[in-house]
């Protein structure tokens, strides 16, 4: 029987593990079933406030430009498809045409009912205490296709 050895350095591979979308879905489903939907939101608020603090700072400083840059980079990296439109002054509409997270989860399991909160609660929390607000105009739970609106608060 063979002896096998593999040595890899971090630089040998690109850090990209799409099954982590599935793991996040499992966590959302677990909270939803065990504690309830409000707790899914509570968890996502805790995570967003802790981890995305630097992004929130950027949004405070650069406004919509920072959100646009973040979204473009995110969907490019994840091989998603989005369209960004500026239909009104100080407002940005983002059409998510292909959601890589939902597409990947659906290959292996059912998408948790509250998974949409990884968009809704996430962006709402991200924009708290900034000059901008978020509206989840449309969200198709089956595909993750959605319309997001980011606009300056009145």
């Amino acid at each position: 029987m063979a002896k096998l050895v593999m040595r890899r350095k971090a630089t040998d591979n690109v850090y990209f593990h799409p099954d982590f979308h599935i793991a996040l879905n499992i966590m959302i489903e677990y909270i939803e079933k065990k504690f309830g939907k409000e707790d899914v939101k509570e968890y996502l608020r805790q995570f967003t406030n802790a981890y995305y603090k630097p992004l929130k700072q950027k949004i405070k400083r650069y406004g919509l430009k920072a959100i646009k840059g973040y979204l473009e980079q995110l969907y490019r990296k994840e091989n998603g498809e989005i369209e960004i439109l500026f239909l009104e002054p100080e407002s940005m509409t983002v059409k998510i045409k292909r959601c890589p997270a939902v597409s990947h989860i659906r290959k292996k399991m059912t998408v948790a009912d509250s998974f949409c909160e990884t968009t809704g609660t996430f962006y709402q929390t991200l924009l708290e205490k900034t000059d901008f607000e978020f509206e989840l105009k449309k969200y198709d739970k089956k595909t993750g296709r959605s319309i997001l609106i980011f606009r300056k608060r009145k």
């Binding site: 850090y15 990209f16 593990h17 799409p18 099954d19 982590f20 979308h21 793991a23 996040l24 966590m27 909270i31 509570e42 968890y43 805790q46 995570f47 802790a50 981890y51 995110l74 990296k77 994840e78 998603g80 998510i96 959601c99 890589p100 997270a101 939902v102 990884t118 968009t119 996430f122 993750g144």
Partner: peptide, 17 residues
């Protein structure tokens, strides 16, 4: 959508939660 590359901090924060 939360990026799969941001999952690890989401996991760690989940344990705290």
């Amino acid at each position: 959508m939360i990026s799969c590359t941001d999952f690890i901090p989401a996991y760690s924060e989940f344990f705290k939660f």
